[in-house]
Simulated scan of single mutants.
Amino acid sequence: MPARGAIVDRSAVPPAVAGEARAGVCGSARRAAAVYRGLTGWWPEEVSIHADDDFDRHVFASAIAVAASGGGAVASRLGLSGVDFGRLVAVRFPGAGVLFAPDDGETAPADDEIAMVRALLLASASRDGEDTAWLAAIVARRAIEPNHLWEDLGLRDRAELSRLLARHFAPLAARNTRNMRWKRFFYRTLCETDGIVLCATPVCTACGDFDLCFGEETGESRLARARRGSAAPLS
């Protein structure tokens, strides 16, 4: 019996959870919660992420769950090809393929903005292997969504996003010395690399848009809202 809170491999996804995830019987929020629990066996607030590998699996489960709640092909909403998405699920969540319909494996569409952010991340990769490559694609794709980046990755707070970037893209993360919002930081870095002056004000504290770049990124995570908003708890 695994210790409570540890993310563990699931050799089989509970049929009831898989059925609810596919059907979306209580809407997209309930689907997200069901997918996360189906992948990991736990609710997001229950997991232990002290170990780096458990943390990485939590990140993948969160991103997959929130992407699955948005409709359309999950792979595309994660910026992954069908092959890469299938590989990710097989490696990180054995037996969980039952959660996803066959068309979840369609190829992600090309997008210049996503490609630039992905390339920026890969240029600062501090770890080798598939996980880092997958995360670069996922972070870049989710960065075009409208909410805070940590929210659109399904994470519990901004600190988890900062940990993810420091772990897998350390040189880039270390450059954010003023704790700028991560999406703003990505785009500012890209502009500076191309020699473009993004800001007219030389001192950030004198800028009228200061809060857009450095303001609080607090709030309830999307998966927490999903569980709270469920009409009835999943067994």
Rank of each mutant, 00 (worst) to 15 (best):
D111F: 02
V91Y: 12
A23R: 14
L122V: 09
A16N: 14
M116D: 15
V17T: 13
I49G: 02
A90V: 08
G72W: 05
A125Q: 07
D53R: 13
S69K: 05
E130R: 11
A51L: 13
A137K: 05
S48I: 11
G41E: 08
A67E: 02
A110T: 11
V117H: 04
G86R: 10
W43L: 14
P109T: 09
D56F: 15
A61W: 02
R141S: 08
E113P: 10
S48Y: 10
A61G: 01
P14I: 02
D128L: 10
D111T: 02
A34E: 07
G97S: 01
A16E: 15
C26T: 15
G38F: 03
A75H: 06
S62I: 00
S124P: 07
G95I: 00
G71A: 01
S28P: 11
I138M: 11
R127V: 14
R37T: 04
P14K: 04
A115P: 00
S76W: 05
R127K: 13
A125K: 01
A32D: 01
S28W: 13
P109H: 06
S76E: 09
D103I: 14
V59F: 07
G97W: 05
R77E: 11
D128E: 11
L88M: 07
A18K: 01
D128S: 11
A18M: 07
A96I: 02
F85Y: 00
S126E: 10
E106H: 12
G105C: 09
F60H: 10
A119I: 10
L135C: 02
P109A: 05
D128K: 09
A125T: 02
A115R: 03
V117W: 09
A51Y: 13
L88C: 05
S69F: 05
L78Y: 03
D52M: 13
L122H: 06
G105H: 14
A110I: 09
G129W: 06
G19M: 12
G79H: 01
V47L: 08
A16P: 08
R118F: 06
A96V: 01
A101G: 09
A23Q: 12
E45N: 15
R142I: 00
D111S: 08
E46R: 06
T132H: 04
R92I: 09
E130G: 13
V66G: 03
Y36S: 07
F60S: 02
D84K: 12
V59M: 04
A21P: 00
I64A: 00
A51M: 13
G27D: 10
A23E: 14
T107C: 13
V59P: 04
F93L: 01
R31N: 05
T107E: 15
W134G: 03
A73P: 05
G95M: 03
G105F: 10
G79T: 03
C26K: 15
R141C: 08
D52K: 13
A67G: 04
L120T: 00
F60V: 05
F85P: 00
T132E: 08
V25P: 14
R31M: 06
L80C: 04
A119G: 11
